[in-house]
Design a protein around this nucleic acid. Structure first.
Lengths: 339, 339
DNA sequence: ATCTTGAATGAATGCGCATTCAAAATGCAT
DNA sequence: ATGCATTTTGAATGCGCATTCATTCAAGAT
């Protein structure tokens, strides 16, 4: 049943030319008469022929010219998180715009990244983007020796010699701290993602440092696992204390929304009446009228655009050096903080 | 710079065996002495050798045995929609659990599906899943002739002879209608996705039919483009009328949440006090305390599980017939309807 | 009409692997 | 030991394509 698919030889025979001619007809810059090309393309279309991308990349393997598979690997954690799904959607779009395909690998924990990369590498991907996770020295080395450019998105490179595009997490924490100090808050709490997650920690550190500079300290710290439910729980813990915080800074919007919903519907509190709330990311639902969450926005579009371009540039010119690019977050003032 | 990667020949030489032996060492069921295999695997590991999946699938191309690339294509629209991102996350997991990789293609409109599939097919994917979109007869034919199983998720197959896993959209609409009639609502409005989207239409039709059976009719119809903002706009239009609806059924939760936020914060109305509101999908944020949206739940986990298994079964046994599987939606009663 | 030049073409080759086929090695029973 | 059945091994092959190399062809120059 499953027809073996049409090959360039079949088309060649049908068109009365050689296989080389067929190949050339499908190679834009090849030397072939316009008339011949047109004829071949017609025959090919009728037969439903499509060059086999796999074979194509096999064949290309020996020319230094462009041994590309046309596939970029992307490794992501927490895809169900709105921030990441938005990110992936954008990456996908931009990659496609440049003619690349995306092989997407989801992992549960950072520890799985190495394995994921290993699987991906079997496909001889042209490059790889790793979102909010880091790879081991060893894998970084392996990628380098195979000539596969790596781009870390929202994660420090730790001297791995790979490119990176990231939001300034520490600065973001500082912005939040500055704002809360200036508006005379006194019992300022923090809710992180996971206790030892690098991103969360950087936001926490920047936040705590700036608070210290203002003569304050972090009133309470909780961790909400980067989920809505985690935010709810953390919020509940925070406000169950005798002395309640008058401000909460969350390392992600999803958790901040958890705090907001928990406060309103389980604690009978509200922001900004009873406390101020600041999130991080600026996901779409942060701006919904009922939320109006004040947050630190990541310029996602520009970051993704840069990330994709940086990666592609390195794929196309392997001599290029790794680039690290930082983007500042911006405070988006909405209704969850008292002024 | 870019080291040409290690091949099975390199390993063979280093291990003092033939290339065949190396290949066999990496093929679980091949006939090779345990000792030899172990030795080869050791050498390979030291050299950082990984079989090239591309070449592997090239080579396999001639044996009927298993000409697999190990890649499943997935085509999706509106990836930023929480419902789809959750779906993709689940698909990815399940595919990986079965040892498959996912080549993800995002499209803006259904019209792009054919092109997307064409791109994907160049990679000789083993199968393809298309989410909430349909493909042309022609492409369906092309897939069949190339022996690539297709699975449509949440879309009718229209006699295309491909597999499908879908929620019962008409039934879902009926459930909503039944409930609103039984609770004596009288001015029942509907908000669809796009006016001619098949899914939206099926929900609308089931809804309208059942309303008619109960001697009612759809009070007002609006369309919200499946987005939050669209829901807001549609809600605003609905409630700007002199005679306001006392119930609204939305073809998706995201739109329903738009209506809810608009009502509360721009219209000074609330559900269920001033009107009842029912969504569709049961996305995570529908259950957030501040929303507590009554909705028609899709059993996403089971649907995805079935979808992936159905597709893989057909990949592994091409003789299998296409299967169409329907899942019922369930009314999840929360706080946005008056009883 | 002849020569030169560049373009167009086809035959042959190799990318990295799995598999087939035939040869060699091993195990076992006699 | 000897014979036979198995298992293990290596050489050779082809998957579908792009490319190289040598050849042919067309077109302008003299």
């Amino acid at each position: 049943m499953a027809n073996r698919s049409v090959t360039s030889y079949d088309v060649a025979k049908a068109a009365g030319v050689s296989q080389s001619a067929v190949s050339r007809a499908f190679s834009p810059k090849a030397s072939i008469a316009a008339k011949t090309r047109k004829h071949i393309l017609n025959v090919a279309r009728e037969m439903g022929y499509q060059p086999n991308a796999i074979a194509r990349s096999m064949s290309a393997a020996r020319n230094a010219t462009h041994q590309r598979s046309g596939i970029v690997g992307v490794i992501v954690t927490r895809l169900q998180d709105p921030f990441f799904s938005e990110t992936i959607a954008l990456i996908s779009r931009r990659l496609q715009a440049h003619g690349w395909q995306m092989l997407l690998f989801t992992v549960e924990t950072e520890a799985e990244v190495d394995d994921a990369l290993n699987s991906l590498m079997q496909f001889k991907i042209d490059g790889v983007m790793i979102l909010s996770a880091i790879l081991s020295d060893q894998m970084a080395q392996a990628c380098k020796s195979q000539g596969i450019p790596v781009l870390l998105y929202n994660r420090d490179t730790d001297g791995l010699g790979v490119s990176s595009v990231q939001i300034e997490n520490r600065e973001g924490g500082k912005i939040a701290a500055d704002f809360l100090c200036e508006t005379s808050h006194e019992r300022i709490a923090f809710i992180g993602g996971e206790r030892d997650d690098a991103t969360s920690k950087a936001r926490e550190d920047g936040f705590a440092d700036r608070l210290a500079e203002a003569g304050q300290s972090v009133f309470l710290r909780e961790y909400g696992d980067y989920t809505f439910e985690g935010g709810v729980e953390a919020g509940l813990r925070l406000f169950s204390r005798h002395e309640k915080p008058d401000a909460v800074f969350c390392a992600s919007d999803v958790m901040a929304l958890g705090v907001l919903h928990a406060a309103r519907h389980q604690l009978g509190l509200d922001a900004p009446k009873d406390f101020s709330l600041i999130g991080f990311d600026d996901i779409p639902s942060a701006s919904w009228p009922g939320h109006a969450l004040t947050t630190i926005r990541q310029p996602v579009r520009r970051m993704i655009q840069d990330a994709v371009e940086l990666l592609i540039d390195r794929i196309e010119d392997t001599e290029l050096d790794a680039v690290i690019r930082h983007f500042p977050g911006t405070l988006i003032l909405r209704d969850t903080v008292r002024l």
